[in-house]
Design a protein around this nucleic acid. Structure first.
Lengths: 237, 237
DNA sequence: TACACCATACTTCCATACTAGTCTACAGGC
DNA sequence: GCCTGTAGACTAGTATGGAAGTATGGTGTA
């Protein structure tokens, strides 16, 4: 386990413990610091962070809702393997929402927002291909800016919940995924918004969100035991 | 409080308590049995259902995530007033997802599914205008059938989470909302799917989901203290 | 060797006890 | 009358112990 032994130091003793644990563990799982399939227990985490089992339990429940942990009563709690189905399910929801967001933005373009987005793309270009973690962070900011620019903070929170499944794959792929191409796709989205091209913006976003997962089959092949055995034999995608 | 005093009888002692409490309370809030703004406490519910505070607490946390309760530490827990903003936020997300679902269905129409949906519409016609609770239940089934017909069970769960905000309004409006019109809109959606009219199906669904809330301003006017004071003075919708 | 049985050491889930923060009502000083 | 301070009754959050269920390793019996 990569987590520091003085992990308790990361906790702010003034605030509530349970949400802090949730965020810490969530981050650890998404970034792959806890391998899929790993077995953990309430008491183990509790002692590691020097808190009682109860807040740990609450964090576990939330992580289970996010599809990151599987709690099996009286048996144990496990870090979920990544399910290709879940990833595609998440992408579907995310695509639907973000497509409508950029449609709304293109219907009423805001010059200041477009400038902001273009500046962000420049930042992305700098780290593309060099620092995948930084890129993922910038990418997240870009998409959040779009949502909030459209006045859709709530929709963004929903997207955020879906995104975790996709982000796990990206952290596994690390520098495999084509950041430069993704940056160009960001540019296409913003340009379409800027010129008020509703259909174009929508199409650009949909293509972009599908491109994110082009390397998925490759990742599954290289790291098969990080993934669940497929549950659907038939076609779905 | 309308809940029976022997409420504990509703709990299945063999299964886990927390999720059962969650479902019970969720139902009670959505159906308006617990008035918006009402203050409740963990211990109050715990004694009412003859369980300890802990599972109640876990149910409260989930309900808070659903936007149905507001937990204020050391202060108390309150049934959320309905926020018009939240309702519109939920509608946006729901519309985006369900629009993509019917587009997928229309792109590859399934005769058996269309027959099933048409039969459901007949059932809806029977109760329309007479039994709003039954209608809401049938309506839920209709939309779920669409989602699952497209192989999008996960997307439906997301919609389900959003729907609660809209359903609260409907239960307040009871027989005010125009069920007959909604049934006809269901028909328009299914017909568009049946003839493979992708754009038509999408448009029909979007119009339908907006029509659901036509009576919202009226409800707000008639029952103002069930609603939160608007948080945004500017235009957003 | 192979299999049934059982003790033991886990696990989650629930109940109970305790801590710390917040609100309310009332007493006392001005 | 009006403000301030404080005691007490709340609240949610956390800690801890126990109950019920499950996996595991060893033992006895063929």
């Amino acid at each position: 386990m990569i987590i520091a032994h003085d992990a308790a130091a990361r906790l702010d003793p003034t605030g509530a413990v349970a949400p802090q644990l949730y965020r810490l563990l969530r981050e650890a799982i998404i970034q792959g610091e806890m391998e899929p399939g790993t077995r953990i227990s309430e008491s183990e985490i509790a002692t590691r962070y020097a808190v009682s089992r109860q807040p740990v339990r609450e964090a576990f429940i939330k992580l289970a809702e996010d599809g990151l942990l599987e709690v099996r009563p009286q048996r144990g709690t496990f870090v979920c393997k990544i399910s290709v189905d879940s990833v595609m399910d998440a992408r579907f929801v995310r695509e639907a929402i973000e497509a409508d967001i950029v449609k709304a933005l293109a219907a009423d373009p805001d010059a200041a927002l477009v400038r902001d987005l273009m500046a962000q793309i420049e930042e992305q270009r700098v780290v593309a291909g060099r620092d995948s973690v930084a890129f993922i962070r910038l990418d997240e900011r870009f998409h959040r800016t779009l949502a909030e620019g459209a006045g859709r903070s709530h929709a963004w929170r929903v997207v955020e919940g879906q995104k975790v499944q996709m982000d796990r794959v990206r952290h596994l792929a690390t520098r495999r995924f084509p950041m430069a191409a993704l940056v160009e796709q960001h540019g296409a989205i913003v340009h379409a918004i800027g010129r008020g091209d509703i259909a174009g913006a929508e199409q650009a976003m949909r293509l972009h969100l599908r491109a994110i997962l082009t390397d998925l089959p490759e990742v599954v092949r290289d790291l098969p035991n990080f993934f669940e055995a497929a549950r659907t034999p038939g076609r779905l995608y």
